[in-house]
C-alpha cells in the first residue's frame, strides 16, 4: 500500500495542472544507451516481480502443501473454480470491498475538506501539514495496537465514551459485522487521511490563482469556488487517490490481522480480508496452491479496478 502510494505521488505532481507531453523529441538519440539505463530495473523486476508472479500462477494450478513443496499435483483450474463456491472466500471478498468503502469514502472526503482549509494562507501552516503526516509516519503496528486498546471491551476509551449515551459495552473484536468493520476502518481512516490531504493540497496549489480571482469578481462565494473550481481541477488527483485507496484496501492486512490477533478476522470472520484469507490458507493451513489461486484472483480484481479507472480518466480527457 505504502509503496504504491509513494510511487504514484511523484507522478501525480506532474499530472496536475500541466499539459502532458505526448512523446519526448529526443527519443531516437542513443536509444541503446537508454535500454541499458533502464535494464537494471527490469532485471530486478524480472527476478523479484515477474518470476514470482508467474511461479505463483504455476503453483495455483496445482495441489501443493507448504510442508512439501516439491510434491505438486496438477489440478488444472480446480483451485479457481472452487473459489466461487467457497463461502469463506466470498465472505473475505465482500469484507474487503465493504471495509474498503467505509474506510476510503470518509477518508477521502475528510482529506478534501482538510486540504481545502490548509490551502488558505495562515500562520503555522507548516506545523499543520507536518501534523497531518504524523499518522502516516506512525508504524501501522503501533497504530493498531493502540486502537486495540481504545476498542477494548472492558477498559477501552470508546466504550467508556459510549456509555454516556447509554450504550452497552461493545466487544469490538467480535461484534456484529458492521461494528467490527467500522472499528477496523477507523484505523485506516486515521492513518491515511492526512496523507491524502497532502496529496490534495499539492493538487490545489497547482490550480492557477486567477481562476479564483475571476470567480470572486463574478461574485462566487467560497463554497461555490470550492465546488466549481477546486473539485473539477482536482479530478485527476481524486481519481488517483481513489485508485490507490482501492488497491490499498485490496491489500489490507496488518490492521485486521493485529486487531483480531490472527488470521480469523473476528469470531465469524467479520473482518477477514482477502489477504488474511490468503495468508491463512497458504501459511497457516499449508494449502499453497489454493492460496496462489487466491493471489491471482486478487490481482485480476485489482486490474479490473485499475482499468475502470483508466477508462474514467480517458472519458474525461475526451470531453475536455
Amino acid at each position: 500500500m505504502t509503496a504504491v502510494r509513494e510511487a504514484h505521488a511523484g507522478v501525480l505532481a506532474g499530472t496536475v495542472g500541466h499539459p502532458r507531453k505526448r512523446r519526448p523529441r529526443y527519443a531516437l538519440i542513443g536509444s541503446k544507451a537508454a535500454y541499458l539505463y533502464v535494464a537494471p530495473f527490469f532485471v530486478v523486476f524480472a527476478i523479484f516481480g515477474l518470476y514470482p508472479l508467474l511461479y505463483t500462477g504455476w503453483i495455483s494450478l496445482h495441489d501443493v502443501s507448504l510442508l512439501n513443496i516439491n510434491k505438486m499435483t496438477w489440478v488444472g483450474f480446480h483451485n479457481y473454480t472452487s473459489l466461487w463456491t467457497n463461502h469463506f472466500f466470498l465472505n473475505a471478498l465482500t469484507n474487503t470491498i465493504t471495509i474498503g468503502i467505509i474506510s476510503a469514502v470518509p477518508q477521502l472526503l475528510m482529506a478534501l475538506g482538510i486540504a481545502h482549509l490548509l490551502n488558505y494562507r495562515m500562520k503555522g501552516s507548516i506545523a499543520f501539514r507536518i501534523a497531518m503526516l504524523m499518522p502516516y509516519a506512525t508504524s501501522v503496528v503501533a497504530t493498531t495496537l493502540i486502537f486495540g486498546e481504545l476498542y477494548s471491551r472492558d477498559f477501552g476509551f470508546v466504550n467508556w465514551f459510549l456509555h454516556f449515551f447509554g450504550v452497552e459495552p461493545i466487544n469490538w473484536v467480535n461484534a456484529p459485522k458492521w461494528q467490527s468493520q467500522l472499528a477496523v476502518a477507523s484505523i485506516v481512516i486515521w492513518r491515511w487521511t492526512g496523507y491524502n490531504a497532502l496529496i490534495y493540497l499539492a493538487g490545489m496549489q497547482a490550480i492557477p490563482h486567477e481562476l479564483y480571482e475571476a470567480a470572486a469578481i463574478d461574485g462566487a462565494n467560497r463554497w461555490q469556488q470550492f465546488r466549481k473550481i477546486t473539485i473539477p481541477s482536482l479530478r485527476p488527483t481524486i481519481l488517483f487517490t481513489v485508485v490507490v485507496s482501492t488497491i490499498g484496501s485490496m491489500q489490507m492486512f496488518a490492521e485486521p490481522y493485529l486487531f483480531g490477533s490472527g488470521t480469523n478476522g473476528g469470531g465469524n470472520g467479520q473482518y477477514q480480508t482477502l489477504t488474511l484469507y490468503l495468508y491463512q490458507q497458504g501459511w497457516q493451513y499449508n494449502h499453497l496452491g489454493f492460496a496462489a489461486a487466491v493471489a491471482w484472483t486478487m490481482l485480476v480484481v485489482c486490474l479490473v479496478l485499475v482499468i475502470i479507472n483508466a477508462m474514467l480518466t480517458n472519458a474525461r480527457g475526451r470531453r475536455g
Binding site: 486495540g148 471491551r153 472492558d154 473484536v173 467480535n174 490477533s261
Partner: peptide, 12 residues
Amino acid sequence: KINQWTKDWNQS
C-alpha cells in the same frame, strides 16, 4: 466472556 490472551483478559 473474555477471549483468553487478550488485553481485557490480562487486566482481569
